[in-house]
Nucleic acid binder design. Structure first.
Lengths: 167, 167
DNA sequence: TTGATTGCAAAGCATTTGCATGCTA
DNA sequence: TAGCATGCAAATGCTTTGCAATCAA
């Protein structure tokens, strides 16, 4: 049993909830996938191993994982919620390519410091923040006019059919 | 006719669209309201002056204003899109109080500079970005447990499906 | 045993679209 | 007059909820 699984089970017990095969499987698949997954993405992956599992259970479990501190919600502007690992995968911000949908994670101590200073100047105590920078990645600019993925040229806004992220 | 109205009409003409009483009224109400308005908020305000106007028209006009460069979409995490002025109201970021929903706008040259450096380091050319810092404002912390705005307890404007993660 | 969990279907939201009617240019 | 605009209703797409059946502790 991995550390994450232990965290999950402790959370489940603390909250008076129950351990089930579905939750175990969903967690397992989530952990092994290093991407920004929407509930639907995860549902499809989980389906391959157990076609009996329902969408609803995935939605509910993802919420549970978030409560347990194992997942973190991220939104890239296409209207669907994605989740990323939140255990031993510390805070970071995102660069989002609006043409191919690729995301790059980065962390800057300097940035954090300035943000803290700004917040306290305004009397705020911040719990968390999100910084998203939208633009075009070098790949997409190199092949100018021919974005990497075929569907991307059609949609000016950020919209990815499925979440292709590279960490 | 205000400058903004001129910008709007130029945009309308350039795009081969038509000027209508509804669009004029919606723009006018939008401009005079210095807040982050959702489509519904604006709809309600506009309704007071012309009850004939439909939701759909407000949605469509808000999109038009965005295209014309007069409005900018902002999302504070409660699932609905809000709009803020985008003409002579330059880029800034937001501090969002998760207990009373108050937002504070700020701008930091230093922050922008660092962001640019980070983007170029990763080969990105950014078009825009959003930085949102969530937390509690001083008012809410002073009156601990008693948020300032009456409606906030019942209907928090910023609501997270589940607990925000700790980084 | 008992209360939590599951999965389906139905409901909820915010937003968009189809379409007949109304208006601007 | 031609074609865009409007507003209603219906449709969307994502997410949540109600509920009867099932299962973990």
């Amino acid at each position: 049993m991995t550390e994450e699984q232990e965290v999950f089970h402790r959370h489940i017990q603390r909250a008076g909830l129950k351990r089930t095969a579905q939750r175990d499987l969903i967690l397992e698949v989530f952990l092994r996938t290093e991407e920004h997954l929407s509930s639907e993405d995860l549902y499809r992956l989980v389906q391959k191993e157990d076609p009996e599992i329902g969408q609803t259970t995935v939605y509910r479990t993802l919420k549970l994982l978030t409560d347990a501190g194992l997942a973190r919600e991220v939104r890239f502007g296409d209207g669907r919620t994605r989740y990323e690992h939140n255990y031993k995968h510390p805070h970071h911000d995102h660069l989002i390519c609006t043409s191919c949908g690729k995301t790059i994670e980065f962390y800057s101590e300097q940035l954090e410091t300035i943000q803290d200073a700004i917040a306290s100047k305004h009397g705020f105590e911040t719990t968390h923040h999100t910084l998203r920078m939208f633009g075009s990645c070098s790949d997409c600019r190199d092949s100018s006019g021919t974005p990497k993925k075929e569907e991307s040229a059609a949609e000016p806004r950020v919209r990815f059919a499925s979440a292709p992220s590279t960490h």
